[in-house]
Simulated assay, not measured.
Amino acid sequence: MDDTKIDAYLARIGARRPSAATPDTLRELHERHLNAVPFENLAIHLGEPISLAADALHDKIVRRRRGGFCYELNGAFALLLRALGFDVSLLAAKVYRDDGTLGPPFDHLALRVDCGESWLVDVGFGRHTRHPLRLASDAPQRDPEGVFRVADAPDGDSDVYAGDKPVYRLEPRPRELRDFGPTCWWQSTSPESHFTRSVTCSLPTASGRVTLSGNRLVETIDGERKETTLASNAEILATYQSRFGIHLDQVPRVDT
């Protein structure tokens, strides 16, 4: 990533170029990325290809001002952090299902950033932490999104908890972005993937979160949930623009 692309990426998330790769800088970049770049799966329902190539990620997230899901968001953020001098490793994770069982390997991509100590960085899980988590501590860690914890799991893995609920299990082995390609393809094409079964676009806000799913706009404000049904395609497209900064020519639709 050259200086022009670095500056464009930083402008996309409203950040200045840091003078040093420090924990405070990492924390600020993490939060600014979450606040600016939506978690969304619109490409799947617009018939757009999903590529994990570096140029394609930069084009989508920075030039076209879109979002993505974990492989894209954390993949692109890793490229930016490395260009800024951070030591970044890509980690595979298995996501816990609602019934408490684990999903498949490479179900999720998260980052380990070694900067003074090891940090778990994740801007690609939807509602999750606003700030990086200490990987080496099993103590509860307070975050604007709640209390989180990283605990030892079998085989050298780590379980990430939100409150008392396990969220995903991290493997310690560093991976390459291309390792996630097959699962990214499955997530974006299989009828068994939850990403193919619904449309979502979501961002945190100062008081909660805003999510657009189909024609349903859901806002959480200070813990209270408000749902609005949008009446037309024009209103849906205008909401993507006004609430998420995403310009679309057509409404994403789930194939039935």
Rank of each mutant, 00 (worst) to 15 (best):
E48P: 02
R178P: 01
C115F: 13
V88R: 11
E227I: 13
L109M: 15
L170Y: 05
I246G: 01
R12Y: 08
A20N: 02
H108V: 10
E171L: 15
S207P: 03
H108F: 10
A151F: 02
G85V: 13
F69E: 03
S207T: 12
Q187I: 08
E145C: 15
H108E: 11
P182A: 13
D3S: 07
R127C: 06
L212V: 01
S188W: 02
L52D: 08
K5E: 02
F77Y: 14
E40V: 07
Y71K: 00
A206L: 11
D157L: 02
S207Y: 11
R149D: 06
D55S: 07
Q241T: 09
N233C: 07
Y96N: 07
E72V: 00
P105L: 12
A76H: 08
Y240G: 01
V167I: 14
L230P: 03
P191N: 03
A83W: 03
G245R: 15
R64A: 05
P18V: 14
I44K: 04
T25H: 00
A83E: 12
L84N: 11
D114R: 15
H247E: 15
G75D: 04
L133C: 03
L248C: 06
W186N: 04
G68M: 05
A234C: 05
A162K: 09
P144D: 12
R178A: 10
G47W: 12
V37C: 13
A78F: 09
A53I: 09
P166D: 12
A139W: 08
T4C: 05
F244N: 03
G245P: 14
A78C: 10
V147F: 14
Q141T: 09
W186I: 03
I61R: 00
D249G: 12
R178H: 09
C70P: 06
D3Q: 05
I61H: 00
D222I: 09
A234L: 04
E40S: 10
T189H: 15
F148I: 11
D155F: 11
A110R: 07
L84K: 13
F77D: 11
A53R: 15
I6S: 06
D55Q: 04
A15R: 00
S213L: 03
G67M: 05
H33E: 14
D138V: 06
G100W: 08
G14W: 10
Y240H: 08
A238K: 13
E31M: 00
